[in-house]
Design a binder for these strands. Structure first.
Lengths: 232, 232
DNA sequence: GTGGCACCTAGTGGATCCATTTCCAAGTGT
DNA sequence: ACACTTGGAAATGGATCCACTAGGTGCCAC
């Protein structure tokens, strides 16, 4: 430091977080996007973020590229970054992709799942059943599924699945907000059946319950086109 | 220009190519990686590339991130970029992913395929049948399949499929080089059947032939572990 | 002779400044 | 009054320089 910049790094990104500044910025923006603070279609200006986090624009650019790799932003030359907006058909196909990929991920994961992970899954599911806040449900649900894939050693598969979760996150929230939590018990039943299959290390059953879970969600989403206001 | 750097941009990247310098650099490196000039596990130093192409290191860094998003490089903090190396199990699972995703892509594409695209597919397949060079076969085969998905409007699906092609490209070449072109007629038959289904706009048949094509390739690859020398 | 520690050299990450493109708005001409 | 052009403002892309981190090498102590 000790550059003309002055209080460079004094902002807030420095405080904690893993590794490089760009990674911390990516973390920050990732949370904002997944939280819905930023929202699809919304533009992200490099300078704003840089100023807000007390860093230069360069690590922001790299962070935006990292997020683009995760499906959370899209970059256009000389035009900047936006959060991608999807229409109902795109989301439907992405759910079909999930329906095909995630069973494969769970099969690859199931043999390597630690006892700790299984216990953690149970804890998460219990919290899902008790909680009633939409935001918390979305976070826990994501954690539940992604944790169930944590035994999968295939990088490409894990990152693909994560990307699909990322770019539909907002529409999941919109759906939950609109449709309410009336039929939440179905999700819980499906999660419990899946968890049981995981504990039994039965990939066939796990795949069955998981694909059913995803497919049913897709169908339900298809019955609520109002989630995609203004586009789909 | 007119900066102390001197002949900046005189190198060779400027000459032609789309858009920004980073995109041109990405193009350049992408070709080298897909060609096999760079090879899995090999390190890519920012400075080397920058010097070789007469640009600064910054656009090289961005290019490496773009390629990382395409599955062609992997970046480690403070350690630089490498071309990822896969073992036989990873490649096998990636082929399973292809087996599940590409039929979906072809279904999404089939209704939108232009007559031009169909004609071009025929031309490519004819060239595949005539040629006997391994490098050319790999290039044409890739072009054939990716072109058959060109009607698919779902960005996530297209980019996922492309990523899977990218990161297995080297092993496809290694396989073709080792096993020779003895059973090439099977590929041709499968391609012709697929192409016929495309022309008839029959997604069911297209999916059937395509998944069979991929599955058979996967099985054949599994019988040649020597492709993964030193790791798998 | 071996193991550990310090220094040194590459090589990446980040900050600042400059060039270029894009978009919007105002002005002018028809 | 409408359309086209041009100028300016804003935001992105790129270059250069500086700071920091990881490996490697050599030296010293045990």
């Amino acid at each position: 430091m000790t550059r003309p910049g002055g209080e460079t790094r004094g902002g807030g990104v420095t405080a904690a977080g893993p590794g490089t500044t760009s990674e911390r910025i990516a973390c920050y923006l990732r949370r904002e996007i997944l939280d819905g603070t930023i929202g699809p279609g919304q533009r992200i200006r490099q300078e704003d973020v840089a100023e807000r986090l007390g860093a230069s624009r360069l690590p922001v650019r790299e962070a935006l590229r990292m997020l683009a790799a995760e499906g959370l932003t899209e970059l256009e030359t000389n035009k900047g970054a936006r959060v991608p907006a999807l229409d109902s058909h795109e989301v439907d196909v992405i759910y079909q992709m999930r329906e095909r990929l995630e069973p494969l991920a769970v099969t690859q994961s199931i043999a390597n799942l630690s006892a700790d992970a299984l216990a953690e899954l149970d804890v998460i599911q219990t919290r899902i059943e008790r909680g009633d806040d939409v935001g918390e449900f979305l976070r826990l649900d994501r954690e539940f599924h992604l944790l169930s894939y944590s035994g999968c050693a295939i990088e490409q598969l894990l990152s693909s699945v994560t990307r699909l979760w990322n770019c539909t996150q907002h529409y999941r929230r919109a759906f939950m907000t609109i449709s309410g939590s009336g039929r939440r018990w179905i999700v819980n039943a499906e999660h419990r059946l899946l968890l049981d299959a995981l504990v039994r290390r039965d990939p066939t059953d796990a795949e069955r319950y998981l694909s059913g879970h995803i497919r049913r969600t897709r169908m339900e989403l298809a019955r609520h086109p109002e989630v995609f206001t203004g586009r789909g």
